[in-house]
């Protein structure tokens, strides 16, 4: 397990607890009381730390190296029923964007999501979860196909942004994202969107327009990453904490301005500390959301979605 800086007090207590248990096993000294005390203190410390997370600490948690990624969710939720589908049919298969069909219970869903890697090699292979235009076009191709067969769409958002590369620009990164956004506003099947890690700007929204938008508790969603915001507005990388604060990018803030509908609770300490529970909660959230929309006619569904987005924004006059 890797620890973030603000988690160090937890690390210390967990190490103490380990030692205590070892002593108990290896000697005749009765350490049950001491162990219990440490456990109690550990839980209290965890509660204290995770209850008072700053926006920047949440950003850090959303990028935690042990955090589950898109395919972890899908494989856990769908098991053997998952069938991955590849390619945009015009340029190539983008490894940073994955898609495929899978079952929850009796219902088939189309899953789309940005995929990150878990070590140096796979991180490069997945381009750090930064999709190219062909990734967005693959997503759209799959969504159109799901629409044709009346299959609901689930998108899992986890990206530091769309890839800002030379070739990405040549192949129309902006156009690819714009096209997805437009088509998703009028797709005739329910779309359920969950931010499972980082929701950075157009790169996230490019698969993020839906009927039900949810965020896991320790994720962020905004128009720009705190680092880039700091570098543009403060002209230095040093103000990322302030930027994270100013951007109001946490799930709670996003719910307040009605951009997300629900917050999905994570286990104490974050999604990675108890993956099984996280997967179960997310699976349930998908099923519940589908229940809400499955009986709407395509026309009502689309009208409701357009209405939802028409209401976003705050202004005078």
């Amino acid at each position: 397990m890797e620890y973030l800086e603000f988690e160090l007090p937890i690390k210390e207590l967990e190490e103490q607890l380990d030692k205590c248990q070892v002593i108990g096993e290896e000697s005749d000294v009765d350490v049950t009381q001491t162990c219990k005390q440490i456990e109690k203190k550990l839980l209290a410390t965890k509660k204290e730390i995770y209850k008072n997370l700053t926006p920047w600490q949440r950003v850090q948690l959303s990028r935690h190296p042990n955090r589950p990624y898109t395919l972890d969710y899908i494989n856990a939720i769908c098991g053997d029923s998952f069938l991955e589908l590849h390619g945009d049919r015009s340029f190539k298969d983008d490894k940073a964007m994955i898609g495929g069909l899978g079952k929850i219970g009796d219902q088939t869903y189309l899953f789309i999501g940005q995929q990150k890697g878990y070590n140096t090699k796979t991180r490069q292979y997945r381009n750090f979860g930064m999709a190219n235009p062909e990734g967005y076009r693959k997503a759209l191709r799959l969504m159109k196909s799901a629409e044709k067969f009346g299959i609901p769409v689930v998108t899992l958002l986890d990206t530091p942004g769309a890839y800002p590369g030379l070739e990405a620009e040549e192949r129309g990164q902006g156009e690819a994202i714009a096209r997805n956004i437009l088509e998703m506003t009028r797709l005739k099947v329910p779309i359920i969107t969950i931010v499972i890690g980082e929701g950075a700007s157009g790169g996230a929204l490019g698969i993020g327009v839906g009927d039900k938008i949810m965020m896991l508790e320790n994720t962020w969603y905004s128009v720009i990453s705190p680092e880039s915001c700091s570098s543009i507005l403060w002209r230095s990388w040093e103000f990322k904490e302030q930027a994270a604060e100013a951007l109001k990018l946490t799930a709670k803030d996003m719910k307040k301005v009605k951009i997300v509908d629900d917050i999905i609770k994570e286990p104490l300490g974050g999604a990675h500390t108890d993956r099984e529970t996280t997967f179960k909660t997310v699976s349930k959230a998908i099923e519940d959301a589908y229940e809400e929309f499955k009986n709407l006619s395509p026309k009502d569904l689309v009208n409701k979605r357009i209405e939802k987005y028409s209401e976003m924004g705050v202004f005078k006059g």
Binding site: T185, G202, L205, I224, Y309, M312, G313
Partner: peptide
């Protein structure tokens, strides 16, 4: 306007 401005992409495209 952070995420609120991001959502204008969806609003206008719709």
């Amino acid at each position: 306007e952070a995420a609120l401005s991001l959502m204008q992409l969806a609003k206008t495209s719709a």
